[in-house]
Design a protein around this nucleic acid. Structure first.
Lengths: 316, 316
DNA sequence: AAGATTAATACTCAATATGAGCATTAATCG
DNA sequence: CGATTAATGCTCATATTGAGTATTAATCTT
């Protein structure tokens, strides 16, 4: 093996829980950081140690844990060591979370922790909610300004990118492009992080800011969840033991940031055979009582690992 | 920011090119390592620097480059620094590769490099080829031995896992489970890497071995490509400028390790509208001459970023 | 207690997509 | 000139998906 540079390596976790009505993410530092800490030399596997740390410190049973992405910051000018962040996504259950004594799962320092609506950081992502419309309106105006200050030969390309990413002019909104949207705003200087100096400030246009590249990591996490709920039953990791179909639908809608067709949603869920009736009913909402279901955890396995989508000839 | 450990961080690249008839991967060290090198402090972004390094050293135009996964090795007992590998997948074109003077894209040392059939490392993955059948036969026998040496209360679980991963007893073969299969073999001690001592040796049962966790990284890469060709047009990154539909089909078949239905494949490809006729014909093969096509690179964009698969209500 | 309201649930229908095949066409090979 | 090898064209049954309409069963209001 060749000689290698020494690099500061940190772990960053995006802990997501569905707190009643909206997906929330565990933050530190008055909402400006994600839980993070150094990779310790004596940790077992990255994944195992992260799971243990999270469960020990927050009391949360982490249902689903996966690596997100590894980010390197921009090379520091002043000879400081390079910082690399290995980010993870952790899904936890309603009510299971306990932002307890030690809120930072990596560190015993214990800075004030809080669960925050992830749409506070990305208001334009919540298409099911009217606030997105005004956020987008403001964003598009600023983007136009930015584009027109660029050389005219780039206008076409930039406008196309804007249309594609925000679902304009014939393109339709793609809820999975969270990161692409954030990066466009970043390039355009519309998010505070883009200016190294102040964090905070112009929050109404571009959502709450975070330190370092933590908002980029959060964007990556949201994009990953949105993509994943389409082909893997990860949404159940966010549900409590029993739930109504409507609650399940709302969870999906809040995560995806858009409405789904009720009847078709039920059909799809029923068709998958991943849940079963508990026999009980919920009459918390106004109308006709809804049946309660539970997730059939035993059936899961790696089953339903995406459909083939290739015209593969069956063996049988 | 808190204090952080110093960790040896290396980059590992899986360069894939379609060399005539089979997918090949660039290897060093007589096929036992993947190209790798340290993360340098002055590199720009991880991705950009990797792309530049690969293109400079191999002369390859890397069409598609994406991060794969970040692996941490097992914690070293003797107080050595922890090693972390950030792995990337790079797709290059037929004929574009030049395993040249400096074969290692990260290092000017220049150790002997070679493109090798990736199925040399995973013979059981090539379901379209008879050698897989014998490989699997041998593997299953060994696996059975391993399972029966475990406590009987685990037999059920382990057999289920074996069936699921190798497509036995009602389960069907899932070509995307490359990593899961490798890890099962690893746990069972059927791959040489599992015994720290000798690398090489019993290659006929479990394929060629690699140093460190490089074969695990290669497994991750193959799994990623197999998954990705289903919903993104990455297969074209491996094709030359002009190709016949049959060549395209063969590329998909060799990558996925299984046969596809010819007519349905053509229908699907035509339906996507991502390629266009060049007007020319190829009469290299025996029979009726085949039309030549080219990839419409302009149409790509982020389009076709997966189908919704959620019953989302359309805006329109 | 009747009617309004709120949900849950049941069905229908058309448009597409997918898996499997059969049939036809157009070259080369011996 | 017929056999062989591919490419290409079509058909058909089955699923899957997107959009609705209709019905049922509770609570809430007056």
């Amino acid at each position: 093996m060749r000689n290698m540079s020494l690099v500061q390596t940190e772990l960053v976790a995006v802990l997501v829980a569905f707190n009643g009505d909206t997906p929330r993410v565990l933050t530190l530092d008055d909402g400006r950081s994600l839980p993070n800490g150094p990779l310790k030399t004596d940790d077992r596997s990255l994944q195992a140690s992260l799971r243990a740390a999270v469960e020990r410190q927050t009391g949360v049973a982490v249902g689903h844990l996966e690596q997100l992405y590894t980010f390197a910051d921009h090379p520091p000018a002043d000879g400081e060591p390079r910082r690399v962040a290995i980010s993870y996504l952790a899904l936890t259950r309603v009510g299971a979370e306990r932002p307890a004594e030690h809120a930072n799962p990596f560190d015993d320092a214990g800075s004030p922790a809080a669960w925050r609506d992830w749409y506070d950081y990305f208001p334009w992502e919540d298409q099911a909610c009217p606030r997105a419309a005004s956020a987008i309106m403001a964003i598009l105006q600023r983007l136009d300004g930015w584009i027109t200050r660029k050389p005219p030969e780039r206008w076409e390309e930039l406008r196309q990118r804007r249309d594609q990413v925000f679902g304009l002019n014939g393109e339709s909104w793609n809820d999975e492009l969270v990161l692409q949207r954030y990066e466009l705003l970043y390039e355009a200087g519309l998010v505070p992080e883009a200016h190294a100096t102040d964090v905070g400030g112009d929050a109404c246009v571009a959502g709450l800011a975070m330190r370092h590249d933590h908002r980029r990591i959060l964007a990556t996490a949201i994009a990953r969840i949105r993509a994943k709920i389409r082909y893997r039953p990860v949404i159940y990791e966010l549900m409590s033991d029993q739930f109504t179909l409507f609650a399940l639908q709302q969870a999906v809608e809040r995560v995806a940031g858009r409405h789904v067709h009720k009847q078709n949603f039920r059909r799809q869920v029923a068709h998958q055979g991943l849940i079963e009736e508990t026999g009980e009913e919920s009459r918390e909402a106004g109308g006709r009582p809804a049946r309660l279901y539970r997730f059939r955890r035993s059936v899961v396995m790696e089953r339903a690992v995406a459909g083939s989508k290739l015209p593969i000839v069956r063996a049988r």
